[in-house]
Design a protein around this nucleic acid. Structure first.
Ligand SMILES: [Mn+2]
Ligand SMILES: [Mn+2]
Ligand SMILES: [Zn+2]
Ligand SMILES: [Zn+2]
Lengths: 139, 139
DNA sequence: ATCAAAAAAGCAACAATGTTGCAAATATTT
DNA sequence: AAATATTTGCAACATTGTTGCTTTTTTGAT
């Protein structure tokens, strides 16, 4: 695990630092998405807020994590499982927000549907967020 | 128009005030969605920031406007055109964000697709946000 | 292992955004 | 027109995000 983390950082030409290792660790051990706040809470050792912001930004830029759209004002981040590259994400999966536990999940196996748009609109990227009850909360 | 505005407010059991009229006016004359900031800029007369927040919140609660999910941290609002009621929205259309002009539009005629989820997940509501180039910017 | 250069972390100060309580102003009802 | 109910604006505060700069850590080469 610790080796994986180092590999991911190395592969993306990022120097290996305590905060990057820790934050990446949080994403790897977690099935759902994380918001900035979650990370600060769970980090254990206290990293500066600025460091967390900068780390998340770096990870997004490198294509290690991606943001998930929400209707409220909270940005959530999750690991990219597709082969995203620096500056060019191409996740094609949908996202699921559980209204019971509040968690957000990437449903990597559910591909975003085709959308037929009116004349004059061209599509670049499609985001689908499904709200409902997740598997854990149903059982 | 001014009559329409009063009607909408009355119908929703809201008292008719300058700020509510103005803000509703902004939504009616505008094809795209508006963020809190847009409203403050375009309002002309200066309403207190708090008033704008509270007005938007009231409008959402009454089902007059709805929020639109975005991956960055900006909440956008648009008129509900379906028959949304207080405390219960049921818009079924998708949203389009133009990466050229930055505007966000409700595509009221494009219905959200069915999504087949894995076992254990149940669906309550689906949000689709398409990113691309809008009609205006294509022409 | 040691050192120099490069990169990141932490700190402080600030900006932007959102929230709350309350008094004054406005709208509605009688 | 007056009484009541509601909304507004203000002030104060909380939270979230940003920027410049100094110190610390990491890296890559000796
Ligand atoms: Mn995802
Ligand atoms: Mn809409
Ligand atoms: Zn759940
Ligand atoms: Zn456009």
């Amino acid at each position: 695990m610790q080796a994986d983390i180092r590999n991911i950082l190395k592969r993306n030409q990022l120097s290996v630092t305590a905060s990057r290792e820790k934050i990446l660790h949080l994403f790897l051990e977690q099935s759902g998405a994380l918001a900035h706040g979650d990370i600060e809470k769970r980090a254990g050792e206290k990293f500066d807020r600025v460091t967390v912001y900068r780390t998340l930004q770096t990870f997004v830029e490198k294509g290690i994590i991606h943001t998930i759209p929400t209707a409220d004002n909270s940005v959530r981040y999750a690991l990219c499982k597709d082969n995203c590259e620096a500056g060019h994400h191409h996740d094609q999966h949908i996202h699921f927000v559980c209204s019971h536990c509040g968690q957000t999940f990437c449903l990597d196996d559910v591909v975003t549907p085709e959308i037929k748009l009116p004349r004059g609109y061209s599509t670049n990227h499609i985001e689908v967020v499904v709200n409902g009850i997740c598997r854990e909360c149903t059982a």
